[in-house]
Amino acid sequence: MLVITRKKGDAILLGDNIEITVVKVEEGSVKLAISAPKDVTILRKELYCEVTEENKNATISDVSMLKNIKK
């Protein structure tokens, strides 16, 4: 893993076509501008983790309760 220090206005290049720029630094938070090709999915990691967790919750145990549900 690379750990690197950047200042406001500095950027990082990932491969040939991804650029991440530090736009703003405030106490405890950093604002980033990411420029990447359209086929690259960019997600907040915690959201991905929440979906992973909810998918695990959604694996079926017993669907017999659904039989009683009618709209």
């Binding site: 979906v51 909810e54 959604a58 079926i60 669907v63 309760m65 659904l66």
Partner: peptide, 13 residues
């Protein structure tokens, strides 16, 4: 759909 024994706790993502 995330099932639950309580109907009001059944959710969809």
């Amino acid at each position: 759909v995330t099932l639950s024994s309580k109907l009001e706790d059944v959710t969809t993502n």
